[in-house]
């Protein structure tokens, strides 16, 4: 019973962090929310995977957050402003409505998925679908590199939660962690590209 309550609390945390990441533009808050999101994802992943394998995902996630955060810190404020301007749809209410749609869809499909794939657990499905939906919305409304990477990481985390329930291979868990880390590093590289003078390239 307690585990179930904590699991639903993790889903609530996922909803809150996803919404915050979508509607707030400050990268520090976004990365903080992403770090919290990994805690919730860790809990849901450990419903089906051993604690050690789940904790690998948490540590990888935090490493990604740290890498992105340190890269963002090294960028000048001018570059920050430019990047923020590139966001396509800036309306907070619009994004809020999008998240409400994702939440409603999640509420609608969770029970149906549980019927199709029994044994996954409602909180695990809800958490996974919420993250996938939030990731897709994120990718749909922005072209800024940091936010695209956050969107991809969110989507991938949702997928990892669901996939952990059907595939418990160590190789898959390891490769998925490497992919998350790789996405973070690729994001850091793309953020830094074009900011250093050409002579430093060699």
């Amino acid at each position: 019973m307690v585990i179930e309550i904590v699991s639903w609390a993790a889903v609530g945390l996922i909803l809150a962090t996803s919404t915050v990441m979508l509607i707030i533009h400050d990268w520090r808050i976004n990365l903080g929310a992403l770090a919290l999101q990994y805690v919730a994802a860790f809990w849901l992943v450990t419903r089906h995977l051993p604690f050690v394998m789940g904790s690998t995902k948490l540590i990888t996630g935090w490493m990604v957050v740290a890498a992105l955060g340190m890269t963002r810190l090294s960028l000048s404020s001018e570059e920050e402003d430019n990047n923020e301007e590139s966001s396509l749809l800036r309306g907070r209410w619009f994004r809020m409505i999008l998240m409400c749609i994702v939440a409603l869809v999640t509420a609608g499909v969770t029970a149906r998925i549980e019927v199709v794939i029994p044994g996954l657990g409602l909180p695990v499905i809800a958490g996974g679908i919420l993250l996938i939906g939030a990731g897709v919305v994120h990718l749909g409304v922005t072209s800024e590199i940091l936010r695209v990477i956050i969107g991809l990481l969110t989507l991938l985390t949702g997928f990892e939660i669901l996939y952990a329930a059907v595939e418990s291979s160590i190789l898959v868990a390891g490769l998925l962690s490497v992919i998350s880390l790789g996405l973070g590093l690729a994001g850091s590289y793309l953020l830094l590209a074009g900011t250093s003078p050409p002579e430093l390239e060699n």
Partner: peptide, 14 residues
């Protein structure tokens, strides 16, 4: 993901 650094030279905006 390994292709990304090849596609974007360090001096060029992605």
């Amino acid at each position: 993901m390994l292709v990304i650094p090849l596609l974007v030279p360090p001096s060029q905006k992605p």
